[in-house]
């Protein structure tokens, strides 16, 4: 791959997905895009990149973006954010919304579904406190392929072991041959949608809790600032944004601030309503 082709691909990914591909990640390009070349019958990577330059084949474009994005995930990844959700964020949201009895949660990079299903399991465990509540759990990802996988809720033995307590494996999954499928009731709790974080959030509505963990690390600073500003718009007053361990709002937006007691948790800088209300829900 020539320097010119790499620079073209870098700009292409930045424009379509926000992905900031650093020069150090150049080695990833060939291994990640080789299967795309095979799938669309391109003899070389150069042919594939040449095609991106001259045609607008949606299927190829999506395949390239999806191949270069990272879908690493597992149930209850890092564990502590989920403890924080169960013990702090959820009780506060239930108290705050006691009158309207509605709770809206968004997993902004749901990948193959482990994060939203982890939240769904926590909500299921809290079911007595949620009786009579309307709970919306929206899960989005840029990749339509992983969203389709997530909808199936079908996982390998290896995947269900990464972070999922075995008691919950038995409680919430059915064994199908060598795979495990999450129960239909949990699947029905999650609304999966393909969604690009570079696009406007207005159509999604507003949320009490937004999970966007281990995604912003792939974006450059201006893109991070833009997305965080839109998260601030989408959060209801008092709502919580949960970021990954290596992510922060500091230096990127002044509309969100870290929770001083709980690392990884962020809220509005001031209690006033967000500058731009999302679609009323």
């Amino acid at each position: 791959m020539t320097e010119f082709d790499f620079e073209y691909l870098r700009a292409y990914l930045k424009q379509r997905s926000g992905l900031a591909l650093s020069s150090e990640k150049r080695y990833l390009v060939e291994s990640r895009l080789a299967p795309v070349c095979r799938r669309f019958n391109f003899a070389t990577l150069r042919d594939l990149i040449g095609s991106l330059k001259i045609t607008h084949d949606g299927a190829i474009e999506r395949a390239v973006v999806e191949a270069m994005t990272t879908n690493e995930t597992f149930f209850f990844r890092d564990r502590l954010p989920f403890d924080l959700f169960r013990d702090v964020v959820l009780p506060e949201a239930l108290a705050r919304n006691a009158a309207r009895r509605r709770l809206r949660i968004w997993c902004a990079a749901a990948s193959t579904g482990q994060e939203p299903y982890s939240i769904a399991m926590l909500l299921q465990e809290a079911a007595p406190r949620l009786s009579g509540w309307q709970v919306d759990l929206v899960a989005t990802d840029i990749s339509s392929e992983v969203i389709e996988r997530a909808k199936l809720g079908l996982y390998s033995q290896f995947e269900v072991q990464r972070g999922l307590p075995v008691q919950w494996l038995l409680k919430y999954f059915t064994q199908i041959g060598e795979q495990w499928q999450i129960s239909a009731s949990l699947r029905s709790m999650v609304e999966f949608r393909q969604f690009n974080l570079l696009h406007g959030f207005e159509g999604l509505g507003s949320f009490d809790v937004i999970f966007c963990r281990n995604v912003l690390i792939y974006f450059d600073a201006p893109t991070k600032s833009e997305i965080l500003g839109r998260f601030a718009n989408s959060l209801i007053p008092g709502g919580a944004l949960m970021l990954g361990a290596a992510e922060t709002v500091i230096g990127l937006t002044d509309r969100l601030v870290p929770d001083t007691k709980h690392r990884g948790l962020y809220g509005h800088a001031s209690p006033q309503a967000p500058a731009l209300r999302a679609v009323a829900v």
């Binding site: 597992f74 209850f76 564990r79 033995q157 290896f158 072991q161 990464r162 972070g163 075995v166 494996l169």
Partner: peptide, 13 residues
């Protein structure tokens, strides 16, 4: 309960 094969991540969790 861990089903073989397993790795460091699974054991950690």
């Amino acid at each position: 309960y861990i089903m073989k094969p397993f790795d460091r991540d699974i054991l950690t969790a």
